[in-house]
Amino acid sequence: MAEDNKNGKNGNGARVGLLERVKAGVKEDVQSLKTDMPAKAKEQIEHLKDPTKTQVYTSIFRHKHDDTPRNRALGVLSNVFLHLHPAKINRDAVRYSYTWGMGGITFYLFIVLTFTGVLLMFYYHPSKVQAFRDVLYLEHDVPFGKLLRNMHRWAAHLMVIAVWLHMFRVFLTGSYKKPREFNWNVGVILLVLTLLLSFTGYLLPDDQLGFWAVTVGTNMARATPLLGHEGPFGHQLGMTPYNDIRFGLLGGSIVDANALLRSYIWHCIGIPIVASIFMIVHFWRVRKDGGISGPAPVMLASEVKEPKK
């Protein structure tokens, strides 16, 4: 075709018009569509047979997935969520009977609670006028609202149980011993934060159950030594119902609108952020302190090396 064009140009000189050239060009384009596109399509289909070679895929996954030890290790190490784990662990550490899986279950429940909690926040106003009605609305009108609230409530209770069992297991296996003393402390703080998270959530439905539980709970703060108006030496330090620690917790002298707002903010923002930071430290230290504590080979009393004093 290019040949024809050339001949035409040579033969008739400048007489070959613009129209002719456009015609030839279009013809050329049409021809290329007919021949090149099927070839490209064929090539594309060939590529689709192995999607792991596409640029999109290789940009996401940084290594191959053939079943080799190297890839198994890379699968864990090159994944931001999985890299909390080492590539390999003690063969007995995966036994359920040793760890009971309670630490992991606690963390999973925290994720479930964050997820359902965020969804609940879409329907809830932390104000005396609306809070209780919002819960009724959730229970009766929001699609799956009741399931959502139930899941949040029961996951919270389950998390408290899982935290206790986790602590119980860590104690029984002596896993707080050197070099893990500090991480045990982080864990104790996380235990307290878990209970506080659950407790601050108790008031939010603004029903009799939550109201009186929180009233009973915060009444104890009146009796705080030095800082409560009914506590030892509180009176001498000028504590009254309007300036003591309970007033600070509730934002008032009774459990009312301010207390609802405060417990909402602690529950949804304050404590979750603090707990997340402690969790990061907790998980990090599990790895840095040598990974999971066992099951370790048993040690005999005769083998203890007494440190020199």
């Binding site: 864990v76 999985l82 784990h85 590539a87 063969r91 995966v94």
Partner: peptide, 11 residues
């Protein structure tokens, strides 16, 4: 082996 791969044994 004294150690096993996390993927898949722990995961």
């Amino acid at each position: 082996q004294k150690e096993v791969h996390v993927w898949p044994f722990l995961l």
